[in-house]
């Protein structure tokens, strides 16, 4: 048995898929590519396939990672070629390598993601104006975000945005849209969603946008070490 790790993308027609739909679309690609994928035992066999993250509806990704278990070690270039031939618009395999079958799960190691957020401005905003807003956010020691759970009872949970947005946000204005680059760090308590960061900037820092009009593109996902350095998910788990 061999475990292969692939870097893939999700955009275009697939941008609006939920994580479950995206995972199904990838399963179809794997079947069409006729790869010797392994299945779990039991009454309802599942493909041995796992992702680094659960990308939400509307969130596209320049890069996402997945692991699959293959019954036979096929050259990486063959796996990539066979899958890319069978990929729908919006999906592609970008890179791959075999990893140690005992390596920790992608979900367990990927803890830092960088996003570009885009949304239309409600009014004119100069680059200086944007910089001033972002500076106030970046310099604020604490930014609480109140998350209201709509399921069941109306429970309110406070998330400290600054525990997750640990690097400065920067951005620019172009053609009436504002573009922000924000890194989101996942702690043992979870993470914050890009749309929630956007909402905080609108509500508490006066960013002149609509709180619900934003699309996020994830430009990278990494392992962030305690020293602040980031590493690719391909690094450090090579087969022995």
């Amino acid at each position: 048995m061999a475990r292969i790790r692939l870097a893939v993308k999700k955009d275009g027609a697939l941008q609006f898929l939920s994580h479950l739909d995206f995972a199904r679309a990838v399963r179809y690609v794997i079947i069409r590519a006729n790869l010797p994928i392994c299945y779990s035992e039991g009454f309802n066999p599942h493909m041995k396939l796992s992702f680094a993250s659960a990308l939400g509806v509307g969130v596209s990704a320049d890069i996402e990672y997945l692991d699959m278990e293959l019954a036979e070690k096929i050259p990486v270039s063959d796996v990539m070629e066979r899958m890319n031939e069978m990929s729908p618009q919006g999906f592609a395999v970008l890179d791959g390598r075999y990893v140690d079958p005992k390596a920790p799960k992608l979900m367990a190691i990927a803890n830092y993601a960088v996003y570009t957020l885009r949304g239309p401005l409600k009014e004119d905003l100069s680059q200086d104006g944007l910089n001033a807003i972002l500076q106030r956010f970046n310099e604020a020691p604490s930014v609480p975000y109140e998350k209201v759970s709509h399921k069941g009872k109306h429970r309110v949970r406070t998330i400290e945005v600054k525990n997750h947005v640990i690097d400065a946000i920067h951005g620019h204005v172009k053609d009436g849209d504002v573009y922000l680059t924000a890194g989101i760090y996942q702690t043992s308590e979870g993470a914050i969603k890009p749309i929630q960061v956007w909402e905080v900037l609108e509500k508490d820092f006066g960013l002149p946008v609509h709180a619900d009009m934003m699309l996020a593109r994830r430009t990278g996902i990494f392992v962030r070490k305690d020293d602040g350095k980031t590493a690719s998910l391909f690094e450090g788990y090579d087969e022995r």
């Binding site: 275009g12 027609a13 697939l14 609006f16 739909d21 509806v57 509307g58 885009r118 009009m213």
Partner: peptide, 16 residues
Amino acid sequence: PILLSKVSKPARYVGG
């Protein structure tokens, strides 16, 4: 796509 993201199940309308 920002407008499209506001409707339910936008993937219904994108083809591909």
